[in-house]
């Protein structure tokens, strides 16, 4: 479908602005939220790329405070996924227990 092609391979860059970087709690929130989408979602930092649905992957990516990372998504709901995760990161993972 045209739509799907449209949505695939989205990528945005974003600045991480929380206190300790992508540590346990934000990583847990991120993975949990990412799992709600059918698209494949990757986080890229420092030349490495990991699965945003895996908390282990996110943790080992070790994005420090102030690090700039990219979110990449491909699939039917890629646009929503990227938008949602961007919102999460900008909102410093608040409001999502």
């Amino acid at each position: 479908m045209v739509n799907t092609v449209d949505q695939s391979n989205l990528e945005i860059k974003i600045h991480l602005d929380n206190e300790y970087g992508l540590h346990a709690r934000p990583a847990a929130v991120l993975a949990k939220e990412a799992q709600k989408f059918s698209s494949e979602i990757q986080l890229c930092f420092d030349g490495r790329e990991v699965d945003a649905k895996s908390i282990l992957d996110i943790l080992t990516l070790a994005v420090p405070h102030g690090g700039s990372l990219s979110i990449r998504a491909s699939g039917a709901d890629a646009r929503e996924a990227v938008k949602h995760i961007k919102k999460l990161i900008n909102g410093r993972f608040e409001g999502n227990k």
Partner: peptide
């Protein structure tokens, strides 16, 4: 809240397919 966050991250670790 802190406790809950830790437990939540443990849950995510358990759910981690990898």
């Amino acid at each position: 809240k802190e406790q809950a966050a830790i437990i939540d991250s443990h849950i995510m670790l358990l759910k981690d397919k990898k």
